[in-house]
Design a protein around this nucleic acid. Structure first.
Lengths: 205, 205
DNA sequence: CTTTTTACCGACCAAGTGGTCGGTGAGGTT
DNA sequence: AACCTCACCGACCACTTGGTCGGTAAAAAG
């Protein structure tokens, strides 16, 4: 009984450190030994808990990456009054976190999507699923915004979601190069400009 | 005299094939042997022409990647009448090329920027330089658009450039996952919506 | 107290990795 | 004809990679 707890604890330690190093150096550029060395664990321990490096990464996706995306980008906009203000503060908070994170290496989801694209179909699919959930959630929010009178009815919700996701992926990619503060400010400013053009005009100000 | 030609030809063959494989599989996931094998060349040939794998990649950046970005994203908007229409067709053409490219692995510049971020400073800088040229060019175009009366004077050109680049990087990342046609359409549609909100209104329609 | 389960160890393996180096032979120079 | 330059060869090197496997010791079960 106690053993199961220890098992979970060790696995979790490996996953957390694994994600940290994969995120920093990339999956293919991080060896299992790198992770083990920084945890003072052995090969035996690793392959006792996980079938392979790939299996290990999949467990990381399902246990850690899903959660991160949920808590950062999905949950904050589910419970919203004015959806546009909710989206703005959600995105701004995410960028703020990145800005003050000394160890920011970009948007975790898009980084891995890029790295595994067409190189590992299974992992790509897991990542795609997360992205799809995010997208569906945005579309739902925008649809609700229409019925609630916040969004012009003629606007294509899916197109807006795509455009939002695109711009977010892009700004996070740019922010790793530095000058985050200015980039964040510029991005938020233009995001608001864009929102103004699709918001239901009678409700603005 | 003839030797120099042969030298250039071989180097160029290596660079082209190298870029192809690095782009497909990533830099760290592509070995020098992979490139050599698919060209039926030997290790000796490679290290006769290039000092190292890294040096080789830098030469690829300077000879091939710079050129691609220029011809796809920079030159098309330099000679423009209406800057917004020029930007639209430039972006749409770039997305069209990607859509019909069976071997599309995303936006070459942002893919490599992601892969080398904080992992190889020298290469990152070379890539950043290209991105900066693109950015400066966009800003210049937007500034000119102001003096020419196409763009509202109160608009922050640099912010618009950042927002444009972000969204482009993002949509190219998404397009690799498939469904390119819809994504391209949605993107272009919202890009135009966004442009409408910053274009000088007296000139519209 | 014995037996079984299991978390973890670390030597080992085959298959790569980037990079070196002494060649070889065709082409140009003298 | 003699020489030299240089594009290219391929065996070789030290090292790292993901992954295996027989072992150990401690905790849980009997």
């Amino acid at each position: 009984m106690d053993k199961n707890l220890k098992r979970m604890a060790t696995m979790h330690r490996m996953q957390v450190k694994g994600l940290e190093l994969f995120y920093q150096n990339g999956y293919y550029n991080t060896s299992v030994d790198d992770i083990l060395k920084s945890l003072s664990l052995s090969k035996g321990a690793f392959y006792h808990h996980f079938q392979s490096k790939e299996d290990f990464f999949i467990s990381i996706i399902q246990n850690l990456i899903v959660q991160k995306v949920y808590s950062m980008l999905i949950e904050p906009i589910e419970k919203c009054d004015n959806p546009f203000r909710a989206l703005e503060s959600c995105f701004d908070n995410a960028l703020e976190t990145a800005q003050y994170n000394e160890m920011d290496y970009g948007f975790i989801l898009s980084n891995f999507m890029t790295e595994f694209n067409r190189r590992n179909t299974e992992i790509s699919n897991y990542l795609r699923d997360i992205y799809k959930v995010w997208e569906v959630n945005l579309v739902t929010t925008l649809q609700r915004a229409k019925t609630d009178g916040y969004l012009e009815r003629h606007v294509d919700s899916e197109a807006v979601a795509t455009y939002l996701i695109s711009s977010y992926i892009g700004i996070r990619t740019l922010m790793v190069e530095g000058n985050c503060k200015a980039l964040r400010y510029q991005y938020m400013q233009q995001l608001k400009t864009y929102f103004k053009s699709i918001e239901h005009s009678t409700l603005v100000s």
